[in-house]
């Protein structure tokens, strides 16, 4: 419920599709990303303070390299 109300869309950095609606915060020394567990995703730093996420299942990730994946 809180995630639905307060969560923001987190998008795949490759295809732009929404991966999940999430809320991120620091708790007990770790960064919690509530909502991330709804998808299998890859994470890496995009900038010194920014992490980004990508699809693991590429049939969900339409890009020019994968014209067989429907953008819808």
């Amino acid at each position: 419920m809180i995630r639905r109300l307060l969560g923001r869309p987190v998008r795949c950095s490759e295809c732009g599709r929404t991966l999940f609606r999430g809320i991120a915060f620091v708790w007990r020394g770790k960064v919690r990303v509530v909502g991330a567990g709804s998808q299998t995703i890859r994470v890496s730093f995009d900038d010194v303070n920014v992490v980004h996420f990508r699809h693991v299942h590429l049939e969900q990730c339409p890009t020019p390299d994968r014209p067989w994946v429907s953008p819808s």
Binding site: A36, G37, T40, I41, R42, V43, S44, V56, H57, L58, E59
Partner: peptide, 11 residues
């Protein structure tokens, strides 16, 4: 299907 590295994932 979906074969590849997993060290940087939440799998």
């Amino acid at each position: 299907k979906a074969a590849g590295p997993r060290n940087d994932t939440n799998w």
